[in-house]
């Protein structure tokens, strides 16, 4: 058996991972439920967000530099996501094969972004310097202060996103466009623009996740593949019935990953996650939380 402080250390790192995964998966789920499209470029959004932030921290150091980097990265990625809707999805939005065509265009976009990063920043690993140091005790385990900040910021971002979608007029319009396109058009809403904002927001949350991940681990051009797979597992595990479903699932995945990495080894951890996911799909294909209809 393991000691209590090890247990809490694993738990805490699992929760931190869960926070990051929630940030990544929510963006993916929002695009899926709104446009009915699975965005395979989502992982590279995370990577690109991290690289943009790294570039800024190279010129401006310190905490202010980090904040500026994060803000810039989020804004830039919002813009890129917004534009990509018009390039990758809108041209064939009336095609009956939309799902399949979007798979190939987003895969191609992922390839372009990944190779673009390789050309722009080279293949060497990079890391963003974390702005906060120090740690606090937690049931005998020592937890980095920065990790707690990340978790809080991630959760606050998701809360803000949820409130935006539920309470503001623009957010409600976005949900309306997601649920019934024709009816939304008949209410005078500019559906294309709303969809573009959706992808933009999803890319922005991905960028934030990228900034945080990039300050915890090394980043490399192919670094997007892992977040994409994790977000995919989370989305399937939790389903997309509610805005919160992938968030719960993200924490389950994060904790399960930490524990299986500790007990079974690094190589087996992903296998455990995928097996978990397939098991869920066999028993409850609509995900652990809720029914199969899509919503926002």
């Amino acid at each position: 058996m393991i000691s209590l402080d090890t247990f809490f250390f694993i738990l805490a790192s699992g929760i931190l991972l869960g926070g990051l995964y929630a940030l990544m998966a929510t963006g993916l789920a929002v695009v899926w439920t709104t446009l009915g499209v699975f965005n395979f470029a989502h992982g590279t959004f995370v990577a690109l967000g991290a690289y943009v932030a790294w570039q800024v921290t190279q010129s401006i150091g310190g905490g202010a530099g980090f904040l500026l980097a994060a803000a810039l990265s989020v804004i830039v990625m919002f813009g890129i996501g917004f534009v990509l809707h018009y390039v990758l999805v809108k041209p064939f939005e009336r095609n009956t094969n939309l799902v399949l065509l979007a798979v190939i265009t987003t895969l191609a976009a992922a390839s372009i972004i990944e190779n673009g990063i390789l050309i722009g920043w080279g293949p060497r690993d990079k890391q963003i310097t974390p702005p906060i140091e120090g740690s606090v005790g937690f049931f005998g385990a020592s937890i980095n202060l920065y990790d707690i900040v990340i978790l809080l910021v991630a959760l606050l971002t998701l809360l803000a996103l949820a409130l935006f979608l539920r309470r503001t007029s623009l957010g409600r319009a976005m949900r309306a466009a997601a649920q019934n396109r024709e009816a939304a058009e008949l209410m005078g809403l500019n559906v294309s623009m709303l969809f573009a904002i959706t992808i933009g927001l999803s890319a922005a949350t991905a960028a934030l996740a990228g900034v945080f991940t990039g300050s915890l681990r090394f980043i490399s051009p192919t670094f997007g593949a892992d977040p994409l797979m994790k977000a995919l597992v989370v989305v399937i595990l939790g389903g997309v019935a509610r805005f919160t479903s992938p968030i719960y699932a993200a924490f389950i995945v994060g904790i399960a990953e930490s524990f299986s990495a500790y007990f079974l080894g690094l190589y087996w951890a992903p296998a455990v996650l995928f097996a978990m996911m397939i098991a869920v799909l066999l028993i409850k294909p609509e995900g652990l939380f809720g029914h199969r209809s899509k919503t926002l």
């Binding site: 539920r166 007029s169 409600r172 319009a173 949900r175 309306a176 649920q179 019934n180 024709e182 009816a183 939304a184 008949l186 209410m187 005078g188 809403l189 209809s293 919503t295 926002l296």
Partner: peptide, 25 residues
Amino acid sequence: IYVMQGNLLFPEMTVEEVLDIAPRA
């Protein structure tokens, strides 16, 4: 204004939310 035939509207939104964004037009 065209009111569609057999419109399902927005299944996951509440009546109030829908009526709230309706006057945007």
